Simulated scan of single mutants.
Amino acid sequence: MESSTLLLPIIDLSSPDKISTAQLIRRACLDHGFFYLMNHGVSEEMIKKVLSESKNFFSLPLDEKMVMARSDLRGYSPLFDEKHESSLTSKGDSKEMFTYGSSQGVLGQLYPNKWPSQDLLPLWRPAMECYYNNVMDVGRKLLRLVALALNLEEDFFERVGALSDEAPVVRLLRYPGELNPSGEVTCGTSAHSDFGMITLLATDGVPGLQVCRNKDKEPNVWEDVPGIEGAFVVNIGDLMERWTNGLFRSTLHRVVSVGKERYSVAVFLDPDPNCVVECLESCCNESSPPRFPPVRAQDYFHERFSQTLASYSTGLKI
């Protein structure tokens, strides 16, 4: 069955009217769990630079990439390293990944980034660090608006320690894009919801991203989400769903192969590992009691990564 195209709400981050913008974000999170973010302040030139440098890295021979293979949550992941419960093949997902984060803070010291050598890719590290810093500014601004959308104080997520350490990570992704000769759907990323608070995605314009707005309905109905040049595609993660007692739902999504190589950059706004995620008072009452028990972010991520990443080490130090 062919999928239809989903017209997502467009949020303008440059709007001076924070309350109206917060209300638009609330409606988008209630209806879709996904939206486009425009005028966010990260230039198209910077996004294209990161995508270009990402392509340079993934073009390296496999043995050179494996020197930077992940041993924890940062580094290179080869094809089929990630496998979700919904994977359509026993091999796992057809994609390569490279994950990095901040060099600052406790996490930056415990899990240092694995950078390609300057001789190999001289412009790589400066481009990636600049992108990280710029998108973090966007993420902090967006989270303040999400707090307002939930009828909370603007600095709520800072006050509960969600941003105490620089836990967010950037994941570079390459999808080979081959089609299954049998005609069956081939997934670069199988159906899943993201684990953290919020994800910001930039793509090279090649289609493939699909969402399923009702993850409890069988069979799943998939809709295409086209890219908009210069815009981030933003979606709610599982921990935000837990915070909001299911009010803001983490939306099932996947990337299907379209016969063309595809590059994207996902920024996962993950909370500090020691942050305890528990139902917000504004999202529960007598008729709608808390659906999820409180959980420490680190414990939640440990459980989820253990289920999905073949190369995930259980010896994490936090």
Rank of each mutant, 00 (worst) to 15 (best):
D119Y: 03
L173H: 05
S313M: 14
D224C: 07
D155V: 01
V234F: 05
V42T: 05
M66V: 01
P122C: 06
L239V: 09
R171C: 05
R254Q: 07
L123A: 06
V135L: 02
R171P: 02
D224V: 15
T99E: 08
L24T: 09
M1P: 08
E229N: 03
P126C: 07
A167I: 00
V185N: 08
L247V: 09
F268Y: 06
G75M: 02
V221F: 02
K141W: 05
N39H: 15
L30I: 03
L30A: 01
Q210P: 08
L60F: 02
R140Q: 11
H40V: 05
V276L: 06
N274E: 14
R254T: 11
D224T: 14
D299Y: 03
K18Q: 15
V255A: 06
F34G: 14
Q298Y: 07
E184H: 03
S306D: 12
M38I: 14
Q118Y: 10
S3Y: 03
E286V: 07
P181E: 07
V258K: 11
L107D: 12
R171M: 09
K83F: 04
S311Q: 12
K49N: 04
D17R: 14
L316H: 12
S43P: 08
F98Y: 15
G230C: 11
L24S: 10
G92F: 14
M68R: 14
S102T: 10
P168L: 08
S311I: 02
W115S: 01
C29S: 12
A266T: 13
C29T: 13
L269E: 01
I10A: 04
Y131P: 00
K217Y: 06
T314V: 15
G188K: 04
F268R: 10
H253W: 00
E45K: 08
E178Q: 15
C283M: 04
G315W: 14
C279M: 03
G139D: 08
S15Q: 09
C284P: 11
A149H: 09
K217E: 14
Y300L: 15
L200P: 04
K65I: 08
S103K: 11
S250T: 12
L252W: 01
E153V: 05
S86L: 06
V276I: 12
P289G: 00
K83T: 06
P112D: 06
G101D: 14
G205C: 11
V185I: 14
T89Y: 00
D194M: 13
G92Q: 07
A167M: 04
P16N: 15
K49Y: 01
P226E: 01
R140E: 15
V206Y: 02
F157G: 14
S117V: 03
S71G: 00
R249I: 09
D72L: 08
L121Q: 04
L179H: 05
E82H: 00
C284G: 02
P78R: 09
T99L: 10
D272W: 03
L163A: 08
K114D: 00
N285A: 10
L145C: 09
S190I: 07
Q118G: 05
S4F: 02
T251E: 11
G92L: 09
R296M: 10
L6S: 10
R70A: 10
L148V: 05
A231E: 02
I318M: 15
C187V: 04
V295G: 10
R171S: 12
